[in-house]
């Protein structure tokens, strides 16, 4: 009787354990998942435009450049 009880208990415990492992591997996002999402962002080089001319009337060539800065 005691052996039967131990056998059934072992069966139940192993079932719970395998179920919990299955849930953790499929439902909880892992670190590698989040890295994959981040890596899917394609970065492109921003175009930096510039233009030349006499913009201050001193008879010399000036250059104006466009820059994009993040907030300080």
């Amino acid at each position: 009787m005691r052996c039967l009880f131990l056998f059934i208990s072992t069966l139940l415990l192993s079932g719970c354990a395998s179920d919990s492992v299955r849930k953790s591997s499929s439902d909880v996002p892992s670190v590698s998942d989040s890295l994959e999402v981040e890596n899917r962002i394609y970065l492109r080089k921003l175009s930096k435009l510039s233009v030349y001319g006499d913009f201050n009337g001193d008879g010399k060539q000036d250059s104006i450049c466009q820059v994009t800065f993040p907030a300080c």
């Binding site: 201050n56 000036d62 450049c65 820059v67 994009t68 993040p70 907030a71």
Partner: peptide, 24 residues
């Protein structure tokens, strides 16, 4: 990023701030 677009010119202190955007 709170990115802002600027135009700068050497020798001119007034930087033209054009607001938040990708560029021109």
């Amino acid at each position: 990023q709170e990115a802002d677009v600027y135009l700068t010119m050497a020798g001119i202190h007034d930087t033209l701030t054009l607001g938040s955007g990708q560029g021109l």
